[in-house]
Write a protein that binds this DNA or RNA. Structure first.
Lengths: 197, 197, 197, 197
DNA sequence: CATGAATGAGTTTTCATTCAT
DNA sequence: TATGAATGAAAACTCATTCAT
């Protein structure tokens, strides 16, 4: 059994394991051994492939973002109109996969870690900008630049807030979370339409 | 240098130092030495008074919550009517003191730590419930139980989300944050008034 | 309320508390705070009176020995004849006071501490010699120097062994312990009488 | 320098070093650094293999007991008759290896530690029971159940007592210790034979 | 006489990381 | 490619002891 071409397999297994471990514990307080163990390899191998825990974590965040982006792109492509684009983004944010206990807990842990690790901060800022621009792509045609900006900002904050509340175990269920954000958007748009008439 | 009655002084200095240290580093990754050093005492004294790091942290969260509650109570007392009560709560959440980089970073760190330390989780849940009930006390008379519930939920999520974004350095400034939440509330109430006419 | 003449009272309270604490925990792993707390004073006062934990412990051992000696002296005085003197010593060794769980545990702890603290070792050697000479005072007239020596040595070892087994919770009850040593002595004396006829 | 299969070697070296260190100091007051240093490894490695000091100590006691049992089994196998079995057990208890200053001091330290650590207590109880049953296996055929019980109990106490006295530096030499216990047994059996005729 | 305040020195434990194989 | 072996550095926690009052 040739042991060739293992690198991509191991890297994937390790970043998945890192997210899993961090999500399970709800904090960065996981050891390389934990992570490597979950991936079925030795801690030394994790180092071999990533150089340091720092790098492995950063790569894991990147993987999470890639995943989220792919989901968002797919959902946007399927959206029939501007309004549907906005709903698509919201739906992805609260999909079973993204809004699972584990992934939410991992996100929150990464947010905190961003304070210490600039690279993580950079990556999360990218996510924040992308969420904003995704929302804007649907809202701008409906509300105009300035109002869209305000509505998107509010929706984004609400989404992040619902994540934090979920992590605390105090937030609404998946379905209600979607309703809350949709309601915010709908009410804002409705008010806008009324005024501009 | 009085040598008696130091206990309350030291306890206060230590919980303040803990929040300061955690806020500065943006995570629980602070040592008892860091904290004690900021308070101008030895790590051993911190243990002497609190028994463990765990207890010191919990006490610090309690102190933060007491502070927030006192601010909220003061602000509510000064509010002339229901609508003003809602604005008072929002204003307190984004006051210079509560929305400072340091305090926001500490809050976020505590949120993550809540995953590991049930006591912290309990305390943060209390905060979440109190924020909700404070908002409800103003909104219920204006919107009725069920709609008030929805509006408060959305506002609370938005507030928490703005905290997380602030911690990431990606959020709006203090003033815009208030505007965003106020706008959410105002729009929701306005829409409601329109419908119920 | 004059605070004069407290010294002997405090010293007694502290040595008693030390034995109590060590007996309760079954090892020297007691803190000055434990001891002082049991004596109802501050750790600082214990230091004031004894200078160091080392000295307090040594004084506690001395106190235990004084007590044992007083009991032995009383019992010997009441003994009608040589044989009764031997039984008196055995009875004292297994009296309710000396053979209590607490005192036995303290003795054992002191034995171990003697390895580290020469002063404790010196004191325990005094006890060993005194036990031996007390037994000898009764046995020599009955068995002659050389045989008395052997019988006393065996009895002393048996007594110490019964202490160790009691500490482990594996030994016989107080009454059976006495019977065992008495049986050893009686059998030895009886065998001796038979031979010397 | 082979780099594989070190685990059993290190484990053995560490338990040996623990007994050595505890024996040398005569108490449990040895640090992981002491022990690891004697074994020629870092304290971290000791933790790596045993998880905690507690576990390392327990394993060391187990090792001591295994050793003693092996010696006893060997000696019993070589014994020609019942009386020889009894002597074999006594001889093993006072063999050069088991009755060395170091091992005796370690035993005593373990006895005290048993008060605090239930696992150690359990192990020492096993030893006490085994010593008893080993003595009984030789004595019962010679003296009958009830008398054998009493003789064994006395002999076991005497053996333990001689250990404690050795640790204190107050006991008889190896040879005299054996003579004392043998004399106890022989006298008891002789008295018994005389009576039952 | 008595103590609350305070600490230095020491101990166990954890963990990312390195390295020889 | 992969790992078992090993450690240095750091952190929480303990406790005898000192000192000012």
């Amino acid at each position: 059994m040739p042991k060739i071409g293992m690198e991509p397999i191991r890297r994937k297994a390790l970043t998945d394991a890192a997210i899993e471990a961090i999500g399970a514990r709800g904090s960065m307080h996981v050891t390389m051994s934990d992570i490597a163990g979950r991936a079925g390899v030795s801690p030394a191998l994790a180092h071999h492939y990533f150089g340091s825990k720092e790098h492995l974590i950063a790569e894991s965040v990147r993987s999470l973002l890639r995943d989220l982006r792919a989901d968002a792109d797919r959902a946007l492509k399927a959206a029939a109109n501007h309004r549907a684009r906005v709903s698509a983004i919201i739906a992805v944010s609260f999909s079973d996969k993204q809004f699972s206990d584990e992934v939410v807990a991992a996100w929150l842990a990464f947010y905190v870690d961003a304070q210490r690790a600039p690279e993580i901060g950079r990556l999360l800022s990218i996510y924040a900008r992308r969420l904003h621009s995704n929302l804007m792509s649907g809202l701008k045609p409906l509300a105009g630049e300035s109002d869209a900006e305000r509505i998107a900002e509010g929706a984004a904050a609400m989404i992040d807030g619902l994540y934090i509340r979920k992590a605390l175990g105090a937030g609404p269920a998946r379905h209600d979370a979607v309703a809350l954000v949709e309601d915010h958007i709908e009410t804002q748009l409705s008010e806008l339409r009324r005024r501009t008439i």
